[in-house]
Design a protein around this nucleic acid. Structure first.
Lengths: 132, 132
DNA sequence: TAACAAGCGTTATAATATAACAATTATGTA
DNA sequence: TACATAATTGTTATATTATAACGCTTGTTA
């Protein structure tokens, strides 16, 4: 699985590596406290890096959690089509990579005449382990 | 079929009516300033009402905007399956009511063994008018 | 009518995010 | 090279969104 980090700036690189090492989605201020030892001191530095990384498709924002995960999908050049499953109990979040789903949603048209360029889908439920 | 607002408390009723009258999704603090004249003075009063109304399915939260809209879908007893289109330019937000879509997503299963109970889907793009 | 759940009002504060500005670094191109 | 310019950085301050905690009141129901 290929990772994208070639043209990243110093702060972008630090933030991305922090997110990649995490096993859970990270919140901005949690990232901030992790990277203070690397010389990143203030929120705007983190938020700017996050914004850029989202643009690049290197990470995704879980909107309902205000948290960030790295993109595991090598086909994901930009964050135009994202889907996640979120366990309500253990909070485990998994990116859903299902070509039928993404094809279905990418081609979806409602009756308002709107041209969709991007979507984000968040499923909630109980994961395999928490169901027991 | 019971009307959704019959059993609402005073604050819940005020907040719901404010959202219903609005033509756009409202943010919590915008609601707060609208309802000060009706005796609601502090954020927790608004947030409590919003939480309950979301639970009841009377309103939905647009996660990527931190804003609330009333549910236009009479079948929507609780907010278990929601989809919206969001215009990137004019910010117009429309609830998508499409039974094929909701059936497809409600029955969707990925390969992680997770049981989905709820989803929220947000499409972004340009609405008919802004496309021109 | 006692007991309990739900709701209320209030103060304070936590958590999330951005504005604004000056300085620095990277990149393209004449 | 040298200049323009776009991107990035560091910093302070502040805006925005959301919740904790506490005691009181109201509504429900056994």
């Amino acid at each position: 699985m290929k990772h994208k980090q070639v043209n990243l700036s110093k702060n972008q690189h630090i933030v991305l590596e922090t997110i990649r090492k995490a096993k859970k989605p990270l919140k901005a201020y949690s990232i901030l406290s992790s990277v203070k030892k690397k010389g990143i001191n203030a929120p705007p530095q983190v938020y700017r890096a996050l914004e850029k990384l989202v643009e690049l498709g290197a990470i995704h924002k879980i909107e309902s959690k205000n948290a960030f995960v790295d993109c595991k999908n090598s086909e994901c050049e930009t964050s135009k089509a994202t889907a996640f499953s979120i366990c309500k109990k253990c909070q485990k979040i998994t990116e859903i990579m299902n070509s039928k789903l993404s094809t279905y949603l990418t081609n979806f048209q409602d009756n308002t005449g709107m041209k969709y360029e991007k979507y984000n889908l968040e499923f909630y439920g109980l994961c395999k382990r928490c169901k027991l």
